[in-house]
């Protein structure tokens, strides 16, 4: 899994400033605060375990920044030939030998439907197949041109989405999940697909009018929106 390209470019990877904070840290903050049993260390260790690093070169940290042109080349290699979702042709490198075949022998493959042929229960399984299938859903795309849909953007199914027939299973799953508003992050978590894949799926459905979104344009001004902040304050007080 580690040598496959998960091209979900989540940002430009700038390292934050490393100040000299702590230069006045007193060594003698002698705290013997009794520590009650908490899961935090276990949880954090688990989270760290989920962060799988492929071999990292020993070069200096600036090398971790993505180099746009090489990455674009890589993406071009793996992207589907057209921008239309090509669910039957996974473009990721370890492509199955028969790209048009369903990934499970017993999966139904109705020819008329635009389906990826991936059965729901196959998603989330560990093993070599797992990475291929989510990207098969998006035809190898992990990113729409234009702004990234924020993590917290809400997705709600439309009447059209509720009524639509012949949806690919993942779209059906999203339509059902989003009967009440759900964030893109929650869609990703429930479907057990990477965030980038969830964004593309949701973006596609929004383009087709199957879902609508709230907060998709990602207000950068939220910390300055007094009205919004007051609403949050009142809402928290009422908890």
């Amino acid at each position: 899994m580690n040598d496959r390209v998960l091209a979900d470019l989540a940002g430009d990877g700038d390292a934050p400033p490393r100040g000299d904070r702590g230069s006045n840290l007193r060594a003698a903050l002698p705290l013997d605060i009794p520590r009650s049993a908490s899961h935090d260390e276990l949880w954090d260790r688990d989270m760290a375990g989920k962060a799988k690093d492929a071999e990292e070169p020993q070069a200096a940290t600036p090398d971790e920044q993505p180099l746009p042109d090489v990455v674009s080349e890589a993406l071009a290699t793996y992207a589907a030939p057209s921008e239309e979702p090509a669910p039957l042709a996974p473009a990721a490198p370890p492509a199955p030998a028969a790209p048009l075949a369903p990934l499970a022998p017993e999966a139904p493959a109705p020819a008329a439907r635009a389906t990826s042929g991936v059965r729901p229960q196959e998603l989330g399984e560990d093993g070599p197949g797992r990475l291929v299938r989510p990207y098969a859903m998006t035809g190898g795309r992990t990113r729409s041109a234009g702004a990234e849909i924020p993590l917290e953007a809400l997705v709600i199914v439309t009447d059209e989405g509720r009524r639509a027939e012949g949806l690919a299973w993942e779209q059906r799953a999203i339509a059902e999940l989003c009967a009440s508003p759900l964030s893109v992050a929650e869609v990703s978590a429930h479907l057990k697909v990477p965030l980038g894949v969830a964004r593309v799926l949701v973006g596609d459905m929004a383009a087709e009018g199957l879902v609508e979104m709230s907060g998709a344009s990602g207000s950068e001004q939220a910390p300055n929106d007094l009205n919004l902040l007051e609403r949050v304050l009142n809402g928290l007080r009422a908890l």
Partner: peptide, 9 residues
């Protein structure tokens, strides 16, 4: 949610 990033070295 799992986020991924590819960096090219």
């Amino acid at each position: 949610t799992e986020a991924a990033m590819t960096s090219v070295s």
